[in-house]
Computed example of a mutant assay.
Amino acid sequence: KYSQEFTMRNQFDFGPKPSFKHWFPRHMGKGLIKMRRVLKNVDCIIEIHDARIPISGRNPGLQQALSSKPYLLLLNKIDLVQFTKQHVDAIFEFYREKNVENVIFTELLSAGQCHPSVHRIIPACVNLVQKSHRHDREGDMDINIMVVGIPNVGKSSLIKALRAGNLGRKGGPEVGRNPGHTRAVMNRVQVSSNPAVYLLDTPGIFEPHITDMHVGMKLALCNTVHDHVMGPSMVADYLLYTLNKHRDFTYTKYFNLPGPIDCSLTLLKHISNETNQFQTRAVQTGTGKVHVKIPDFDQAASVFLKAFREGKLGNFLLDDVLNFE
């Protein structure tokens, strides 16, 4: 079970294909329609994506639908990734081939303050707008920017960070810890006074059809998909497979394991014992019902996933950007 018996899987067995009926909720389709409708009042698009999956999981339909406007891609949450220069160069090269020329790596907060990367965003957008033709808004002095992306990558948090950093004001769109918090195109929020810049928050919108199960699992690991869509135990199993594949065994120290392990059920049972995650079940015996405690694997899986998402199990890329086809 542990280090002396450790044998790592060569591939992940997904089993029966999970149901994706909750993958693309109705509000996402409505949101994209509304975004197209207000596009004439927008000067620039900011797309935010999770830097842990800089290539996987982006919704290409967003750029296709909104490409008539200047476009800036932010790869956010760099504090959860360990980059090398080779990685960064490969990501820039990938996007150059996709005609995405403007890419900024960002972290919204650092030690409770706006990260320096945040201060590059508004000047970059203003520069793009000044170099473009504002067909519908030539006489307007203010700049409207629409913030788009898949769920839970930091769209609402970006608006709050820019508002605090540039105007010294709190407030802005409410931020949720789980994906899908913003469900409608919101009113514009001022984030700069010189020049006057307003940002428009939008709901996270996935690509309607995900065919690569590895991409779906990476999205789940980054908490852009509700865990119940895949099942928390399955997502936790994929996380364990991924950590072992990266030869990153930080989880063994964090959860007081004697060594690396490849069986997720054994791991989750151990976490249940360590964190007291149990559920009570009634069992019928010859003398009547007896209540017994059994490990709560879903709760243990949530503990495991939360540790990863907070960077406590190591920071690394989930995409193999050096060998991406």
Rank of each mutant, 00 (worst) to 15 (best):
H226F: 08
G176E: 09
V175R: 11
F14M: 04
Q284Y: 09
P25M: 06
N276D: 14
L167R: 10
L200G: 02
R37F: 10
T224M: 07
R26I: 11
Q113H: 12
K155G: 08
L162G: 03
S302W: 01
V191W: 04
G149W: 05
V175H: 06
A301N: 06
L167K: 09
W23H: 14
E93A: 14
T250I: 08
L257A: 12
I271D: 01
H209A: 14
N59F: 07
D142Q: 10
F20R: 02
N76C: 02
E5N: 15
R137C: 12
G29N: 10
G112Q: 09
D262F: 07
D237N: 12
F105I: 05
N223H: 11
G57P: 06
S68K: 01
A300E: 05
F105M: 10
L219N: 01
D50N: 07
P232G: 08
D13Y: 04
V148K: 03
K98Q: 15
K40I: 14
D227Q: 10
Q130T: 12
P295V: 00
K17L: 13
G57Y: 06
H214D: 14
S3A: 15
R247K: 15
E138K: 11
Q4V: 15
K85F: 08
H228A: 12
F206A: 10
M217Q: 05
D13G: 01
V153E: 02
N102F: 07
L268Q: 01
D50H: 06
C44N: 03
T84F: 06
L221R: 00
L313A: 09
S3K: 11
R58K: 15
N102Q: 13
K1W: 01
T202M: 09
G29K: 03
D142G: 08
K34P: 02
V185Q: 07
D201G: 06
A220I: 00
G61R: 00
S117K: 03
L32I: 14
F94T: 11
G286H: 00
T266R: 05
R52M: 12
C222Q: 04
F308R: 05
W23M: 13
N223E: 15
E138H: 10
V189F: 11
T106L: 03
G172Y: 00
L240T: 03
V103H: 04
D248G: 03
L265H: 08
L158Q: 01
D227W: 05
I261K: 03
A164H: 05
I78P: 02
V81I: 10
A300Q: 04
M35W: 02
L39Y: 02
L305K: 03
R52S: 12
S233W: 02
E107M: 13
Q86A: 14
H49G: 11
A164T: 04
K306H: 13
K40L: 13
I121C: 07
Q190F: 06
H133Q: 15
I91Y: 00
L75P: 00
L239Q: 02
P16L: 07
V100G: 01
R52P: 03
L257I: 06
